[in-house]
Design a binder for these strands. Structure first.
Lengths: 358, 358
DNA sequence: CAATTTTTGGCAACCGGTTGACAAACGCCG
DNA sequence: CGGCGTTTGTCAACCGGTTGCCAAAAATTG
């Protein structure tokens, strides 16, 4: 029998360390157990299983915990249970203000329900996105993908491992939150028709963007209904810069009204057209999408089809958290619900009556 | 002696579960060890301690790991080591675009160095901030506070437990990243002086804002140097709305040029003044701070003192990560370095020569 | 080729909670 | 007051890595 060398002595005797597990580190359930005079497992139950221990011991333990400033160690808890009270949000581009409100909505809901939000971006790349998602998988209970760029199969593959909610896209078998573009678009197109426009251009977004396709479809349908001509133009990237670049094509198209895939494109386009001497909206009407922060900073302020982005973020978070808790209780077997939110036209100064060419 | 009931059987036999630890869950180092024919601890070493095992076994283990699609379990790793490869970023307000670039900068740097960013906001409240910080403490290796609203002592208290880096504020004994306002401000004020202005108003930000105080000091100093009169006005909140509200006071002040605590205030102020029929910059010059996203969307585009926000974010992250690694190696005892970044004037259309009152 | 130093791999304890199985303590009944 | 069904608390295994200590193996040296 080997003589044990009192391994306790090897604990923490290094006073040099400033941070980390030095000194009195933090109280554990064992410390509480000692103070309260019960077994550690009883402490564990008192703290996580309501009603499992008697009111008397409960109080005893809670007092001890309070006295010791006890805080659960999330890792120790996560290890056996696999739950982390954390979920991930992956956005296509943190720079893009579209996602600001989504992030905010998700963050608020998360905090409210005692979850922590972990953020990552995919830089508009499907590959980066998949990597980020895989990396997160290990640490989160669920995932929200905002405007994902990877393909449906990848998304479903991830959804097989962990609950996933998708924003701004519909993926079969995965719960989604999508703004229903039709109302907003038809309002926009009707407004344009009423103002004497006949030809409408749509500036599309990234080719992989599901939402861009939906918007184009919506524009086509609405134009048909209002008997307007609709043409589609491509953009290089869905940013202010991309908007500037597409200005040539817009002028060449002969359209008197433009809807763009998003507000950034609209803003860039407007800047470029104005720089070339065109008057908005007298000579050309511009309508954006999303109603992002800053859409009303422009002169004239931007008319846009608003998506309730904050609502999308919080809706997705709510959906996900509900899913997580459902998963916990029963096995699974829920329907992949799609949450639809309404869009609406926000009429500002960048669209209006077409003045007869002077 | 109690007869053990082969507890292995209690493992996972529930096929109903869709997510979580069902079925073949994930490979562990034990699985790898079995495949590679070595001891689990050897696997652990091969995977985290470079050079600790022979090249031969290393390869053996790596192959097995690849074959099994092994991924470390971050919780299992965090439990004994206390390190999580995660750091927190707390911002005063997620809605405020000032923080977008900071978040982005920090996120980029984090990902680059294989860290994960966890985000939280304080809603401009010192109390909320402290709560958020405390909550994070348990899960992160370090913390970045962007424009913190809590007081110095609270910050130092937190910094005692975990490495902390502060952005947009100087706290004694804590590493900070602060834009040095002087260069940008003196450029701005000189430009205003050169354009015939004599009286400059400064619209201040939140009273607890360290940065607001610095900017006011800078404005005073620069005005004195240029022999301009400087007056200080208070805002209700540092947002577009707050800017609108302060417009009255600005007009009443008789100043012909205004510097505002941040761009949002400047934008709101400009909107309100223009709505009242004033012409910018002919009748009044407006200069903001930060050069946030959208500052150039306005008409005229906003002149502003740019802080390199993205740089602040990535700088803070770099500082923090260096700190973490230093902490790991030696005990501690580093000096609390302050990283200063330069500000510069971005001259756009909202400031210029004062036209004689017609 | 033996002696010694350096590598390398294995053992076992540990991080801090969670949880199934079980027994002690309790309340209730006839 | 004994039998019986509940509560309530304890024991011990487990989650998946990390790491100090030690011995076997390999490399170096005399």
């Amino acid at each position: 029998m080997t003589e044990p060398k009192t391994p306790d002595a090897a604990a923490t005797t290094d006073p040099a360390k400033k941070h980390s597990r030095s000194g009195k580190s933090h109280a554990t359930i064992y410390d509480i157990a000692k103070v309260a005079g019960v077994n550690p497992s009883t402490v564990s139950r008192a703290l996580s299983k309501p009603g499992r221990v008697s009111a008397k011991t409960q109080k005893l333990i809670e007092d001890a915990a309070a006295e010791l400033h006890y805080q659960v160690n999330p890792f120790a808890r996560a290890l056996p249970t696999g739950r982390t009270n954390t979920f991930g949000l992956i956005v296509a581009d943190i720079t893009n203000p579209t996602f600001f409100d989504i992030i905010r909505g998700a963050e608020t809901t998360a905090t409210l329900r005692d979850y922590t939000l972990v953020l990552a971006e995919s830089a508009e790349s499907g590959v980066t996105e998949l990597t980020a998602a895989r990396r997160m998988m290990a640490t989160v209970d669920g995932l929200i993908l905002a405007s994902p760029r990877m393909d449906d199969d990848d998304i479903r593959a991830i959804a097989r491992d962990k609950p996933v909610v998708v924003i701004n896209r519909e993926v079969d078998g995965v719960p989604c939150v999508v703004p229903d573009v039709n109302k907003g678009i038809s309002e926009a197109v009707r407004s344009l028709a009423a103002n004497g426009h006949h030809k409408v251009a749509f500036v599309a977004g990234p080719p992989q963007s599901w939402m861009s396709a939906r918007r184009w479809e919506g524009v086509q349908a609405a134009c048909e209904w209002s008997r307007l001509e609709a043409v589609r133009l491509e953009s290089t990237k869905p940013t202010v810069d991309g908007g500037r670049q597409v200005a040539r094509d817009v002028r060449a198209s002969g359209a008197t009204a433009v809807l763009t895939y998003n507000d950034l494109l609209a803003i860039g386009l407007m800047q470029e057209l104005q720089a070339a001497g065109m008057v908005v909206p007298d000579q050309i009407s511009i309508v954006g999408f999303d109603d992002i922060f800053g859409a009303d900073f422009t002169t004239p302020p931007l008319t846009t089809v608003r998506s309730p982005l904050g609502e999308c973020g919080s809706g997705a978070a709510t959906l996900l958290l509900d899913l997580l808790h459902r998963d916990l209780l029963h096995g699974a077997g829920e329907t992949a619900a799609t949450l639809r939110v309404e869009t609406e036209l926000v009429l500002r100064g960048s669209s209006g009556r077409l003045l007869p060419a002077g």
